[in-house]
Simulated assay, not measured.
Amino acid sequence: MSNAVLARLRAVFALPNDDPRKTLAVAVALCLACSVVVSATAVTLRPLQERNAALELKREVVKVAGLDDPGVSLSQAFEQIEPRLVDLETGELLADADASTYSYRDAAQDPDQSKALAQDPAGIRRRPDRMPVYLVRNDGALATIVLPVYGQGLWSTMHGLLALAPDGRTVKGLTFYEQRETAGLGSEVASPKWLGQWAGKTVIGPDGKPVIEVVKGSVDPKAPNAERKVDGLSGATLTSNGVENLMDFWLGEQGYGGFLARLGELGR
């Protein structure tokens, strides 16, 4: 800072306290100081926030895969899971990619790692070229496939995990671990009661296309194709539609469709 600038600052702060120029200068100085503190705090805390987010994701993957056990640590439980990256264009698992350090959220913001969507039922605008998948094996045989899914609800982008049986068609579990939908209405998308009805549902038809429906009201278990339907969220039609739309997208050709069609290559 030059001597001339310092001299001007001293002159301003030497003014009487009731002088508007001094009041403005003090306000600007306080704003700048607060901005520096906030920025420094954000930079300092970011690595910790990223570690916490990674741990929370691991916890959710373990839970939806049915591997959570009070007597087993998170790290031990996650050792039973094989994180991989899948090329969504080909449906192939990538042998030379590290899924543990990959962020599909960052990739979606990078034009070199994603593509703009002409057809975008999930409301995500850009789709990463690669997505992580989590494989669980039992004595070498594929037991569970966990797929990250996300899409637009009423107020927020809902991030979840869908666990499928080895057939790639039947749901074993579902969780939405990040959402900001209307409290008491759309936020029920994360409630254990609503999520519990997904187990055993069929999400992919014999032709390999998504078939799951989130219906208005309750599903009649005796109705035709009841195994393909789940109850809608009461008072939250747009959130319910968002769930159905993101399922259609991620289980379809633009999402994991190609990968699910190749499950036989994984040794099930």
Rank of each mutant, 00 (worst) to 15 (best):
S2A: 14
N3G: 15
V5Q: 13
A7Y: 02
A14S: 08
N17V: 07
D18G: 07
D19R: 09
P20R: 01
A29M: 10
A29F: 12
C31L: 13
A33R: 10
S35E: 00
S35L: 13
V37G: 09
V38R: 01
A42E: 11
T44A: 10
R46L: 11
P47E: 00
E50S: 01
A53S: 05
A54G: 12
A54E: 02
L57V: 06
V61A: 00
V62P: 05
K63T: 05
V64P: 07
A65R: 08
G66E: 12
D68Q: 02
G71L: 07
V72R: 12
S75H: 06
S75R: 14
F78M: 08
Q80G: 12
Q80P: 09
I81Q: 00
P83E: 04
R84M: 14
L93A: 08
A95V: 07
D96S: 03
S100L: 14
Y104S: 02
A107H: 03
A108S: 13
D112V: 06
K115G: 11
A116W: 15
L117M: 04
A122I: 13
R125D: 15
P128Q: 14
Y134R: 00
V136R: 13
L142D: 06
A143N: 13
L147H: 11
V149H: 02
G151F: 09
Q152V: 13
T157P: 05
L161R: 09
L162P: 13
L162G: 03
L162R: 08
A163N: 06
D167R: 09
G168R: 02
K172C: 01
L174Q: 06
T175V: 07
Q179I: 08
Q179K: 09
Q179R: 05
E181P: 05
E181Y: 03
P192L: 05
K193Q: 11
K193H: 15
W198V: 01
V203Y: 13
D207A: 10
V211Q: 03
V211N: 07
V215P: 00
K216W: 12
V219S: 01
D220G: 15
K222C: 04
N225F: 11
E227R: 04
A236I: 10
L238I: 12
L238F: 06
S240M: 11
G242N: 15
V243H: 05
V243I: 10
W250Q: 09
G258P: 09
F259I: 09
F259P: 02
A261C: 15
G264I: 09
